[in-house]
Design a protein around this nucleic acid. Structure first.
Lengths: 220, 220
DNA sequence: TATTAATTGGAACGGCGTTCCATGAATGTC
DNA sequence: GACATTCATGGAACGCCGTTCCAATTAATA
């Protein structure tokens, strides 16, 4: 079973198909990935693609795995465990922000190898933090849920907007609506209008993570 | 502009269409909602449905809003603000668990009226808890992200499994795999196998929420 | 060289969301 | 009461999707 020589100059392979799929997903969004568009981009037919991948779910899983793996590749994670968790979380957040379609996919494949590595990296740092053993599962689970949940919702928000519209303008519009809410029915949300308008998604994600880490720190 | 009399004994209306859509979604999952199936169930044609709703997105949004609104209807929320947040969060978790397709939808309509009410209810309790004003936005955002993120991922996990398979058996299988991981590469996850197998999703969701509330409590 | 197995690419299938339109029932006008 | 108009219906048709099928082509093997 020796290595096969190429059949075309640019032979098809799962890797090349996945790479083309990622380009398509990034350029056109989730709806842009079709087998016809993919076949056109690869200058082949849809049947040839099916020789290398099982179905569209397989393709999306491979594309997601590729992004997640890249996002974590070659990271020299911080020595301080708390900072290490922040770095890891931020890498995932940025990766999902850059490829919003990943946000919808990650939750569909929680037991992939790349996910296992992330789970372990987080857990290892919890141990290093001195979290008591009985709290390991709770602490791990709240972190994982927050990181992927918040990153996923951030991506969903990004996907809502037309690709060319201005994010800060859209945010300002929502903030303006909140500022005009009935003060009797919505005393709190009115107060939130200004910070909503001015916030940065990354900083906000980290602020939430820090609150969770503070909560984990209270367990003794 | 008087109330129109019915044209059929069981006149179509957005409400009836949405109710039928929810039945279909619950029975068959997200893929089960098609205009043909819906038209058959309502004994009409697809064109008639489009007279009442704009498109499939509109239908899913209305169905989601209906579930969320029901989940919160007539709740006498606790007097204790911390317990109030837990009750609210658990209601949302249970609603999304009972209708997993909602999990994928909520993040697509974060500015709907039902969502605004939830946001305000959470915020009001943060104020009652005595959280300092400068921490309001951070505390609110971490709670909202966690509640919807974790509930959504729980629902995604539920959607992964064939409708008839046993949840605890699937969980035990994953736990068994974790227990067999290389102790050098995965020292933490190996330890998590047992709690993963034995955990209850609702309890775990609440444990995470409590850690976050503890973290919010550290802000003075 | 002859045979076999690995790949390719495009045609075809059934199902989807959506649009179009002919039909009919209720309402408003005289 | 007759007629025009608006509201509502339901089914046919369109274009696109994921997927399957298969004849044709190329590399590997005997």
């Amino acid at each position: 079973m020796t290595k096969r020589t190429e059949r075309r100059a640019d032979a098809l392979s799962k890797e090349r198909i996945v790479a083309a799929a990622i380009l398509l997903l990034d350029a056109e969004g989730e709806g842009g990935l079709t087998f016809r568009a993919l076949a056109a981009r690869l200058a082949t037919g849809s049947g040839a693609i099916y020789w290398h991948i099982a179905d569209k779910g397989d393709l999306l899983a491979a594309a997601t795995d590729s992004i997640i793996t890249q996002a974590l590749a070659g990271v020299a994670l911080d020595l301080d465990p708390r900072q290490g968790i922040r770095t890891l979380a931020l890498r995932l957040f940025d990766a999902i922000d850059a490829h919003p379609w990943v946000g919808a996919q990650v939750s569909r494949e929680p037991w992939q190898p790349a996910m296992l590595r992330i789970f372990e990296e987080i857990g290892g740092r919890l141990m290093a933090l001195g979290v008591p053993r009985r709290a390991w599962f709770d602490a791990w689970s709240v972190l994982v849920n927050y990181i992927f949940g918040a990153a996923g919702q951030n991506a969903a928000n990004a996907r809502l907007q037309a690709p060319d519209t201005d994010r800060s303008a859209a945010l300002a519009a929502i903030a303006a609506r909140w500022a005009r809410l009935d003060p009797v029915d919505y005393p709190f949300l009115r107060q939130l209008a200004v910070p909503l308008r001015d916030h940065d998604d990354r900083d906000q994600f980290l602020a939430g993570l820090d609150l969770i880490l503070a909560g984990i720190g209270t367990v003794r």
